[in-house]
Design a protein around this nucleic acid. Structure first.
Lengths: 231, 231
DNA sequence: GAGTACGAAATCGTATACGATAACTATCAC
DNA sequence: GTGATAGTTATCGTATACGATTTCGTACTC
């Protein structure tokens, strides 16, 4: 009953999850060279399942693969960042709109509580927690989305974003403040039973505004360093 | 110089392309059991690259994989079809809107020519060609979309749709007629320099209407057969 | 000193082999 | 005859091995 634990999941699955986690959490940052044999050794498996895992990650856009050369964590340039954010704003907007009719009072209350906590984070300057809460907030808005494909796209977008974050993400206090206000506005829109259209537009603009703020700040901070991390 | 041809591309790539093509063109219809060894033999390669290819296709949503059981071409039920179409309507709408400002007179003329040919197909009842032209028409609207991720999502949606088509797709003459009119309306919207918002909405509705027509027709045709194809 | 050619090392690509798992079938008990 | 069980077969899962390709460093030439 205690079971041999990892035996339940295939090594290929294990490798996939492990590498993905390391990309998302920043252990493997953009540009990092993924050497099959090395990863295989790290995880205590052979290269075949690792290879399979990496090709799957490639299909998700998290890594780039080149024949006879190898895989690297993708991401890197500001254009890529922009496109990712733009895509995310579209699918997030859709997901929120589709969820909206299914969001109940309890959900709104929960989201509002999260938003309040975000406000606190602004007072005590805690960008890390703020970012995490932001994700929670939007999760509440999505979780009822009945279309699994759209949810999947949202999560993929987040993964990509997470893999880029360490290099590009910068906390912009002014924007963060606006963001919290927009959250409240979104909740009121949902409560008021606004049209899916209106909700979609608001949700999309919310992310677009965040993107714009980042871009402005990145521009101010000079070149957003074209990535030198190679470990 | 004549080169050994296939040597240029890895067998894994080859397997990926081959299986994908067969799924999209209907050779492997939804529910088809993909046996690694069999495919490997067909393609004259070993199972390792085939396995890799199939896991990639899984990541794209074209096949379903179950541990120690195998892979089957995914698709099947009407709900799935609905979700795919809904997702496609959203990403297509976005792609069209993003392309719109970059669409020139020549593009519009080309699209219009395609649309005229579609009208002909209605006269001479040629559903197959009509469907192909429909894809061409929308391709013209997309091809300038600057965001590669969104284009990628559109193509994935199309692939999924193609893999479902043989089982679910039915040509609805009445709807087809409306569709051609909507195409013209879309072109005029683009020519007139309408807002991306308006274009997105029109493009999205265009597909939604098609979806609704299919669903209505499928309902009329009794149960859309939950797929028995197992070859 | 710059550029090229050669060779060694690192890494990928795939075939083969064998163990593990699940699906199927036939047999037996009731 | 029906249900359960044991044995068989088909198929998957992964390790290992080796050939192929690329990359990098060194030596040689101009």
């Amino acid at each position: 009953m205690a079971d041999t634990a990892t035996t339940t999941v295939s090594k290929s699955e294990q490798a996939y999850a492990a590498v993905k986690a390391r990309i998302v959490d920043g252990t493997y940052s953009p540009g990092y060279r993924l050497v099959l044999a090395k990863i295989a050794e790290d995880l205590g498996v052979s290269v075949v399942p690792v290879r399979e895992a990496i090709r799957r990650l490639e299909a998700e856009g998290l890594v780039t693969f080149e024949r006879n050369v190898g895989a690297t964590v993708s991401g890197i340039d500001p254009t890529e960042y922009l496109y990712t954010m733009q895509t995310l704003s579209i699918v997030e907007g859709a997901a929120t709109a589709l969820s909206a009719p299914l969001i109940g009072e309890a959900d709104v209350a929960r989201a509002r509580a999260v938003n309040a906590e975000m406000r606190d984070c602004l007072e005590h300057f805690d960008p890390v927690r703020f970012t995490a809460l932001n994700q929670d907030f939007h999760s509440v808005l999505f979780e009822h989305c009945p279309n699994p494909h759209i949810l999947d796209l949202v999560h993929r977008g987040w993964n990509r974003l997470a893999s880029l974050r360490s290099s590009t993400f910068r906390f912009v206090p002014g924007r963060a403040h606006d963001s919290v206000d927009e959250h409240e506005a979104l909740l009121q829109l949902i409560e008021s039973g606004a049209s899916p259209d209106a909700i979609e537009k608001a949700a999309r603009l919310h992310r677009s505004a965040t993107l714009d703020a980042y871009l402005a700040q990145a521009a101010a901070h000079d070149h957003p360093t074209p990535q030198t991390a190679q470990q």
